[in-house]
């Protein structure tokens, strides 16, 4: 998802009787559905896994501003421009909620951001794909934020209090994102033949990367079991992907567009769609840094960070001067 391959302890899940008294009391609180709060005792692995997941999630929100930021100055109308600007501003806000949640685990935000800028931290593979034209703004809002909603609605039930509360805030704002995207798609799919073709093309290109957002198949997802036991993760990758496909295919049909997967059919018995897996080799390549836009994205983040340094330092110098004057 926004955190697609979060390493956990790398070990199997311990049975209750193998745990120390502290670990056991902790696991029992989680099993009872209690939230864990920042100053509570927690296993080292729980803290580390959470820091990885929340910071990756935060980085995804921040880098996620770039593909859409690309089109703010070229939006077709002033209204579309204002909407897109508000949406991108929300993404910045979501990144800040998440960094704030990660910091409650005793890490410094500056260190997390350094890890991103230096290329040591991961963010969602989806943001390493280009946004080529205005139809992509529709497809991104609809598919990417739609996929994010599936994951984030589930994550409201995550065991760590600050993370769960950040998800509640984010979910409240996210449906605006998906709806504005679908609104663009409806306009384009109902427009001229050329506009409809642009909508189809955007869907064709973003469908597979959107499916990849949920992470590798459960069978290959080595770190999931421990994260699920700790309720850091509350839904498996395959469950999320299925839910997304089931909700999205009828929306494609409503637009009068073709589902990009010829083999996608509704299985009458299960009530779920069967669908083709995306190309997992491509997914792992993008995650490793070899996607179409990985280099561009990091370059843009580094440039923004470096060019904003004088401003951050200037405000801090001013604050210090005021403080000395007041003393």
């Amino acid at each position: 998802m926004y955190a697609q391959e979060v390493k956990s302890t790398g070990k199997g899940v311990k049975a209750l009787e193998e745990m120390s008294a502290e670990e056991r009391a902790f696991q029992e609180r989680i099993d009872a559905g209690e939230k864990i709060e920042p100053k509570d005792w927690m296993p080292d692995g729980y803290r580390k896994t959470l820091v990885r997941q929340i910071s990756q999630h935060g980085h995804s929100e921040v880098v996620g501003q770039l593909p859409e930021g690309n089109w703010i100055t070229r939006a077709p109308t002033l209204e579309r421009k204002s909407i897109l600007l508000a949406k991108v501003q929300d993404e910045a806000g979501h990144g800040l909620y998440l960094y704030s949640a990660a910091e409650t685990l005793g890490v410094s935000r500056a260190d997390l951001i350094d890890d991103l800028l230096a290329g040591r931290a991961k963010y969602s593979s989806i943001f390493n794909y280009p946004t080529l034209n205005w139809a992509d703004m529709g497809a991104v809002g609809w598919l990417v934020d739609g996929a994010a909603i599936v994951n984030q609605v589930a994550l409201q039930r995550t065991s760590y209090g600050p993370y769960s509360r950040a998800m509640v805030r984010i979910c409240k704002e996210e449906s605006f994102h998906a709806r504005q995207g679908y609104d663009i798609m409806m306009k384009m799919a109902g427009g001229t033949a050329a506009q409809k073709q642009m909508a189809q093309d955007a869907l064709d290109r973003l469908w597979w990367p959107a499916l990849m957002m949920f992470g590798p198949p459960d069978a290959d997802s080595v770190h999931s079991a421990q994260s699920m036991a700790w309720k850091i993760k509350v839904m498996t990758n395959d469950e999320g992907r299925q839910k997304f496909v089931d909700q999205t295919i009828p929306q494609i049909e409503y637009l009068g567009l073709e589902v990009p997967d010829q083999d996608a059919v509704l299985d009458a018995e299960s009530g779920h769609y069967r669908f083709t897996d995306p190309d997992w080799r491509e997914f792992f390549e993008v995650l490793k840094g070899n996607g179409p836009c990985n280099v561009d994205r990091l370059r843009a983040r580094n440039m923004a960070h470096d060019e904003g340094a004088w401003f951050r330092e200037g405000l801090m110098a001013h604050a210090k001067k005021q403080q000395i004057a007041a003393e």
Binding site: A86, Q89, G93, Y97, S100, R109, P162, R169, A319, Q323
Partner: peptide
């Protein structure tokens, strides 16, 4: 309490909080 943020001083913290936590 709604969360936290970084800011150089109280005045900027209020302005940033307006943007981060009260957009709706």
């Amino acid at each position: 309490h709604v969360g936290s943020l970084h800011a150089p001083d109280a005045e900027m913290a209020i302005l940033n909080a307006r943007d981060v936590y009260t957009r709706r």
